[in-house]
Simulated assay, not measured.
Amino acid sequence: MNPLLTAEQAVLGSVLLDPDQLSHLDWLAPDHFYRPVHRALFAALRKLRNDGHPASAGKSVPLSWVTDAVDEAGLHVRGLTTTYAHTLISACPRPAHAPVYGRMVLEGAIHRSITEHAIRLHQAARADALRGEVEGALHYADVLTGVLNDLAQRWGTEPRPVAPAAPPATAPVAPPQGRTDRVAQDEQFLLAILTEQPKAMDEVVGWLRPGDFADPAHGRLYRCLGPLHHRGEPVDRITLLWEAQRRGLLADGTLSGEQLTAICDGAGPASAEWLGELVMRSSVTRAAATSARAIRALAENEALAPGRLINHALHELGPLDEVRARWQPANGRPAPTPTAPVSSPNGPPSAQVHAALARSTPRPISPPAARPSSAPSPATVRPPSRSHG
């Protein structure tokens, strides 16, 4: 038995039995349902209620509430029958528990939505890496951030980055073919320019970091250039080789004197700033792909509560935000000023969020609503031995 499918059926069954339950589900949207037929039926039930269907005004629920909902939903989806509507009614143990069932549906939608947007971010990052661009990855990163903030509001939690107890397990992914060699060449060319042109470090030292290099050895070599520049010492292949030796790059096999000489011999007429931008582009797309894979791994963990999932996902976007903040000035654009999440004017009111959070709030016992004439009797809907106290 699929718990998510059961919860979706229970929500719809509760509303078919008691239309007034829709007033406790304003925070739940049709798109939160996984099955298309369930989306169409929930949208139809809400439309009938908003249009003033007689079932919304009286104490008894006429059979037309079910048949009209099926007819309305049938305009948008195929395969829905009155028989299935009564199956939904049978699947609801307690109509008064509709907010809790809706909470389960929303939880599934949160995991599913974050997974889908993480996949889109990863695809955009891979595509940008092949083209040498960053715009698509940054756009989908913004979209994912907005989705996380909206889902946090609907769930009733504060969106804030929180590190998971253990890093999400992600399988290593090879860089896109056709770009690896080109990125390595750009990095080597940049290191050669920084070594052979005395003033070249001034162009990139403010925003380029060792971690931006795809090849760890290139990043460690760039880390050797930094202290030489900071101390105001001469920078050439001899001083760089000495600094590399002092930092253990030669002893641990990261680099050899011949490799460093080969890198330095590759210098030519070029701009260090332009080459640094190429390295930064690669760094942005790698960071986006890494964040996307980590967020997807979190979202696919069904045991992770939605509030923690949202906050962990925001934390996993942090490395991308850091690289992006340095990419903006490197690209000649001002870095964006971070702002606190603002509640959307169209978001659910606090009373609705409270309803969503009310898992088992005691409610006064009211007489059961009259069921449609063709609906199963209470005895056939749920055996007494399986009832919940």
Rank of each mutant, 00 (worst) to 15 (best):
R281L: 15
K199W: 05
L28R: 01
R371Q: 11
A129Y: 09
E302G: 00
M104E: 14
G132N: 04
R182N: 05
L304A: 08
P345L: 02
E300Y: 00
D31H: 13
E302V: 02
I263A: 13
I365F: 04
D215G: 01
R326Q: 12
R154V: 15
P159N: 09
A214K: 05
L194S: 00
E273R: 09
Q197G: 08
S60Y: 06
P368C: 06
F189C: 07
G136W: 02
L28F: 10
L191G: 14
G248Q: 04
V11A: 09
S90N: 04
E187N: 10
I114M: 10
P36T: 04
A141F: 10
H312L: 05
G257F: 03
R39G: 09
S387Q: 09
R286H: 15
H53W: 07
P167M: 04
P93S: 00
Q188T: 03
A141I: 03
P168I: 01
L12A: 09
L75M: 07
D31R: 15
D215Q: 08
D181Q: 14
H229R: 14
R94Q: 11
P159K: 13
G318K: 11
V279P: 05
H139K: 13
G226Q: 07
A217V: 15
Q197M: 15
H312A: 07
L75S: 11
P319W: 13
A184K: 06
V235M: 14
R359E: 05
L48Q: 09
Y101H: 06
P336N: 03
L249H: 06
A169W: 00
R209G: 04
A109E: 10
W242F: 15
A163T: 14
L16Q: 03
A29E: 15
L309D: 04
I310P: 09
T261V: 07
